[in-house]
Write a protein that binds this DNA or RNA. Sequence first.
DNA 1: CCGCATCCGATGTGATACTG
DNA 2: CAGTATCACATCGGATGCGG
Lengths: 242, 242
Amino acid sequence: MYFQSEPLIKSSTLVARSYAQHCGLARALDFVGERWTLLIVRELMAGPRRYTDLADGLMTIPSNLLATRLREMEANGLIARRRLPAPASSVVVYELTDDGESLSTAVIELARWGMRTLPVTTGGRPLRAHWLVLALHARFDPRAAAGVSESYELQLDGEEPVSFEVTAGDGHARMGPAADPAVRIAGDADTLVALTAGTISGLEAVHRGARIEGDPAALERMRRILPGGPIAASGQPVAQAR
Amino acid sequence: MYFQSEPLIKSSTLVARSYAQHCGLARALDFVGERWTLLIVRELMAGPRRYTDLADGLMTIPSNLLATRLREMEANGLIARRRLPAPASSVVVYELTDDGESLSTAVIELARWGMRTLPVTTGGRPLRAHWLVLALHARFDPRAAAGVSESYELQLDGEEPVSFEVTAGDGHARMGPAADPAVRIAGDADTLVALTAGTISGLEAVHRGARIEGDPAALERMRRILPGGPIAASGQPVAQAR
DNA sequence: CCGCATCCGATGTGATACTG
DNA sequence: CAGTATCACATCGGATGCGG
């Protein structure tokens, strides 16, 4: 493993830069510490996606970087590229391998940490439906879900619905409509964010244009099981002088 | 917030590059996604440290990058710089704020993920004692610790000992010797890694030069409570062609 | 269109040297 | 000891091109 094949071809940095420390965190960052890599994992946590879907979901990633990252992640065993079967052949999709999937607990914890400082209004930042798969997992509170078995459906205007299914203390989010949701909510991003964050009531959400169907009691359970809202955000800026 | 103060002073990129997405993961990476940042968190999880301690623990970080990262992390509220009190004044130490400390669950999960592919031999990679604070937290299995209340002490040759205290299903690692350890183990890095990974026995470790004191049964409990070893590492390389 | 590759300016990183 | 300063270079970001 100390030698690479074809060592003379262009010879441009064949070895990704590594921290080279015998430490689990350093090793993890060797694999997923580079820019965009964990966001690609986030995209694929919503299911297999094609190249253009990824570019669209990542919004501002340069095309060459996306191609490079996908190559790296495939070489590192995090993702697999696959051709779709019979009719839609020639279509390539990327999906998480088991190793890549096993990142989700760490990714969820990171998202949970980052969510604390997310304002309850999107404030110009885009919000895509499939990001909710991660967000709902991060928000899930198993204690509040004890004894509950029902599902919820959220739909951002113009996007595919997302469903969250609670089964006996366990919870799981995925793309697509729920079979028989206890509550179904549709509306624009800011209204859904505020509603699930608990800063506005269901009535207020409807007043803002949201469509809510189902049991009002189930809506309250959903807000306890999937609590949101910034946890007394310290309001620190990301920006600073160099 | 659209205008920065002092816009004319050197004017070099006052805004750190941000993903600018309404997503908890993207926000987390805005704060801790840049190179070296999470490793600095790792260093400080072992307690307050001075600049040169950090430079030493990070091993290969350029001095200017360390200074830059510390400035960024302080501006973002992750760490605080503090002068030591009375006698040793003029000594500056860095420590995690509550916000920085709250990263530990995510950091531990990332480390747990990365540890799977760490070989059971250090293979030339350095291993520092204070990294064990994170490693032991990542290895801790609460289920195996149920009903156990005792502490263990590990010491890498020539370094400060690290202790792990189990109290009724809960576990915590910190720098420094344990008060009354059920087991005390000292030895070189590869021996301690192999012993805690379960690939060699205590007898074999002693044969390799380790010093083990205490109850052999407690050593077995420790190996169950702090299990190690790569979880069928898929052996994928970090390196790949560009 | 989809799935990239190429080009290029701006920025970040790494190694070394230097300073209060 | 606790950082700055400098500089070569790798990487990133944005635009554009291009074969299938």
